[in-house]
Amino acid sequence: AEDTGVRVELAEEDDGKKSSIALKLWVEDPKKLKGKYKDNGAIEFSYDLEKEVPEDVAQEMVETGFFHESDAKIVGKSIRDRVSLIKWKRERTIPVTE
């Protein structure tokens, strides 16, 4: 995944079963953002792996005031990259019961 300057990580352990998972997002490199950024720290939120779209969450963050509109794409991509990785790992994991 491209280094967007925005870091998204799991905020909880992934048991591979839950549809909603906690993620944590923060800015590692503010210079990569296009708009003004006020360092809020890490933003934790719940994300539904089955129903939600990363770009919608990014837009909500913009509307909440965490990011400028011009950075919605970068934030959305960062979330998307992490979600893709989570799903990929889940597909690779063979359940213990099997």
Binding site: E9, D29, G41, S46, T64
Partner: peptide, 27 residues
């Protein structure tokens, strides 16, 4: 450490807290 909660109009909760020191990138 201080933590605040912000709720978006659509209902999503965002919990804001300081980035853990161990996760800060070397400047």
């Amino acid at each position: 450490s201080s933590t605040t909660q912000v709720v978006h109009s659509a209902g999503r909760r965002f919990i804001v807290s300081p980035v853990p020191e161990s996760r800060l990138k070397d400047q």
